[in-house]
Structure formats: structure tokens, C-alpha cells
């Protein structure tokens, strides 16, 4: 059988997640197309980050299914999700703060490399060769995100914007098919946002789809090919930025029309 509906990169169906009595996700269903930048927007508390955490295996959902490239995605197993090709960044930057910038990215290569303890202990040729390729790739990625000169610095001494870039480089080091960015532009000024937008577009052009959470609606509408809107733990709209902007349900969610 031919892999069904290969037009979708990711399909989430009926994802539900409760914390005690709180229903953070209430049956989220959405689909991402390959080679696109998709914005995940919604009011505060709509469940965006929770959805990210379910997607990347940090939370195990109470119900629902996730298909990635047509195959079910393992639930609640972050390392397997990364191995399958989904990498992420965090809303409150989570770098390996006391390791060097280069080492941070090298850790990202872990999942695509093999050398084990014996290789390390005996310094086999294969291990040394692999270590060289890890280093080379890590340097390339630092150049790619524009912090190539910072490799030897300690991660938490970087400027805020550069830390965000490093987080992206680290995620890209896992060779993802889908890059999930949780508020990548938070705390950036307009010029930094514009440059970040360029980087994200380049990532898409180079073959990695991007899913991003963002509050700045204007910036998202300019950047993204598709938008999904979450409200009260449900996906209430999906489509092109124009279509979503004119959707009455979205307007209601954001402006609270008829909420009273």
C-alpha cells in the first residue's frame, strides 16, 4: 500500500491533555504540510505550549493520535521523537548553560551519530572520524544561524538573541524534518525579528518545515504560510494567514466578541 495522504507532514487527531481538573488540550486536531512555516497562535492559556510538549514527547497525552510522515509518533518519549525528526526550542531558553556554544550544538548531533563507550575508550579510527564530522557539522550550523564566531564562548554568556539562535542551531543539528520553535522572537526588537524571520524562511527553503508559537500576530502573518489557531484547548481555525484573519471565530477568540 502506498503511504496514505503523504501530503501532510504531521497530523494530530483529537489530542487531549488534562492536569488535574484543568483541560489544557481538548481534542486538538490539526495538520501540517511539508515545506511550510506554520504559525500556532491563540490567546494566553489556549494550550499552545502544552501542545508542543505533547508533540515533542515531554507530556503523554490522555487521548488522541499523532502521525508524522504517515507513521504514528511515539508518545511521551522525547528522545524517540527527536530521532524521528522533530526538534524543538523552548519558550524560556533551555541551553546547556555551562557548556560551550560549540558543545551545545555537538550534543544535538548525538542522535545522528553512533560512537559508544568502547569507541571512546580505545579511540578507534571510526570514533575519531565521527568526532571530526560532528565538529565540522556543528561549526557549519553555527555559521548557518549567524553565530559562527562565538563557538568557544560559554552558552549563557551569549546575548539573548544569540542564545535563541544557538537553540535553533542545536535543534537543527538533529537533522529535523520539522522544527518546532516556542516563541522564538520573544523579547526581540523589530530589527532582530526581521533577521530571525529571514533565518526561519531559509530553514524552510532548505527543506525543514517549521512550526512556531508566537504572540506578535503581525509578524506571524507576514512570516507564515499557514496559521493554526488554538483557543481553550481546541484548534478553532486553520488556513492561510488571510483566511484565518477573516475567520469570525478567530476574531471572537481574540477580541472576545460575544464572550459576555
Amino acid at each position: 500500500m502506498v503511504r496514505g495522504q503523504a501530503s501532510f507532514l504531521l497530523e494530530a487527531a483529537g489530542i487531549g491533555k488534562r492536569f488535574g481538573g484543568l483541560r489544557a488540550l481538548n481534542g486538538v486536531s490539526l495538520a501540517l504540510q511539508p515545506d511550510t512555516i506554520t504559525g500556532l497562535i491563540g490567546p494566553n492559556g489556549a494550550g499552545k505550549t502544552t501542545f508542543f510538549n505533547v508533540l515533542t514527547g515531554i507530556y503523554r497525552p490522555d487521548e488522541g493520535t499523532l502521525l508524522f510522515e504517515g507513521q504514528p509518533l511515539p508518545m511521551g518519549q522525547p528522545h524517540e521523537v527527536a530521532a524521528r525528526g522533530i526538534a524543538r526550542t523552548f519558550q524560556n531558553i533551555r541551553l546547556f548553560a555551562n557548556m560551550s556554544v560549540l558543545e551545545n550544538v555537538m550534543v544535538g548531533r548525538h542522535v545522528r551519530t553512533r560512537a559508544g563507550v568502547l569507541g571512546a575508550l580505545f579511540q578507534t579510527g571510526a570514533t575519531r572520524h565521527e568526532e571530526d564530522t560532528i565538529l565540522t557539522r556543528a561549526r557549519e550550523l553555527l555559521d548557518y544561524v549567524g553565530i559562527g564566531t562565538q563557538g568557544e564562548r560559554i552558552a549563557n554568556t551569549l546575548s539573548y538573541g544569540d542564545q535563541r539562535r544557538l537553540e535553533i542551531a542545536r535543534a537543527l543539528a538533529t537533522d529535523p524534518r520539522l522544527l518546532a520553535l516556542d516563541e522564538p522572537a520573544a523579547g526581540m526588537n523589530a530589527a532582530e525579528r526581521a533577521r530571525l524571520g529571514d533565518l526561519i524562511r531559509r530553514i524552510r527553503t532548505d527543506g525543514t518545515a517549521v512550526l512556531l508559537i508566537e504572540h506578535d500576530v503581525k509578524w506571524v502573518m507576514q512570516l507564515c504560510d499557514r496559521i493554526s489557531v488554538l483557543d481553550y484547548g481546541e484548534c478553532i481555525a486553520e488556513g492561510t494567514p488571510q483566511a484565518v484573519q477573516n475567520d469570525p471565530k478567530v476574531i471572537e477568540a481574540y477580541l472576545g466578541v460575544g464572550a459576555t
Binding site: T56, G57, I58, P78, H79, V81, A82, A83, A87, R88, F90, R94, L95, F96, A97, N98, M99, E103, M106, V107, G108, H110, V111, R170, A171, A173, T174
Partner: peptide, 17 residues
């Protein structure tokens, strides 16, 4: 390196595979 990463931030380390 993987050990150091886990020591620093286990959640981020797991998310990196």
C-alpha cells in the same frame, strides 16, 4: 558530552534525542 548535557538540563537533553 551527553552526560554533561543531562547534568545541565535533563528535559532539554531528552528533547535533543
Amino acid at each position: 558530552r551527553a552526560w554533561a548535557a543531562i547534568r545541565e538540563d535533563e528535559v532539554a537533553a531528552a528533547s535533543m534525542g
